[in-house]
Amino acid sequence: MQGNSEAGPARVALVQSKPRKGAYAENLASLRAVFAQLAALEPVPELVVLPEAALTGYFLEGAVYESARSAELFGHEISSLWRDVAGARPVEIAAGFYEVENGSYYNSAIWLALDERETRIINVHRKLFLPTYGVFDEERFLSRGNRVRVFDSPLLGPTALLICEDAWHSIVPTIAALKGARTIVVPSAAPGRGIEGDGELVSISRWRELLRGIAMEHGCFVLYAGLTGFEGGKGMTGSSRAIAPDGEILVEADAREACVVRAEFFLDDVEIARANLPLLGDLRAVLPDLLADDELPWLRGRTDAAGR
């Protein structure tokens, strides 16, 4: 049962991968080796999280049409790999991929639950915020998702998946937390920039502050799996990390090394954090009034005949 210490800590592995651009089959083969490594660990992780676009690389431009697959196919490929190397051992896997459905393309992340008998797709999250500025051009090739679901992970209980920029809009993790999420999992591909920082790229510090802020505001765990390696000169910043509900960084990887990051944590730390800093409960009480404010731009049109 989730949330009880008696069940022991949750054991998680974040795979900070460095795929070869567009080489799906080769990257899948590499993942088999990683899964074999994870299955040989003691203890074996109960959840494996891969980054955004984990098996293709992130900057695909038009090649996204050649690399995308259906959620069912991607889920089958990933789960088959695990079965091949780990047999019937249960695991949950979250991974980012480019998804196609009925001719529409998405930047998505899947959540799979494998037990002795079956593989279930627990959730497919489609990235809500598609960065299309500066170096980014997602919206030219992809459609956006339109909701953040909170789903029931057998290991973690109520959980939400966000992809990269989704986490930068504070309203998104807020909605996830209001819908009951106790863990927020963020597969990401974050190209590094900003050399005016103190010992690391500014974008790495910014991500760390942002994720700690989510954890502390909502009293939830945050798991972040970052892509690493250079893509045509743009260096992905890895830094996969697990953050506790009080903002403590439990573990964090280097920016530039492909690696496996292990974390163990007790889920009932969520209750302790929320009892000691009940911001989420306060928000639940006040948010309806804030959202009904007729000065908000999307409500102003309904109440102001002049359309100001």
Binding site: Q37, A242, C259, V260, R262
Partner: peptide
């Protein structure tokens, strides 16, 4: 084999 990063004990 990827290096494994473990949290501090």
């Amino acid at each position: 084999m990827l290096p494994v990063v473990d949290p501090p004990k």
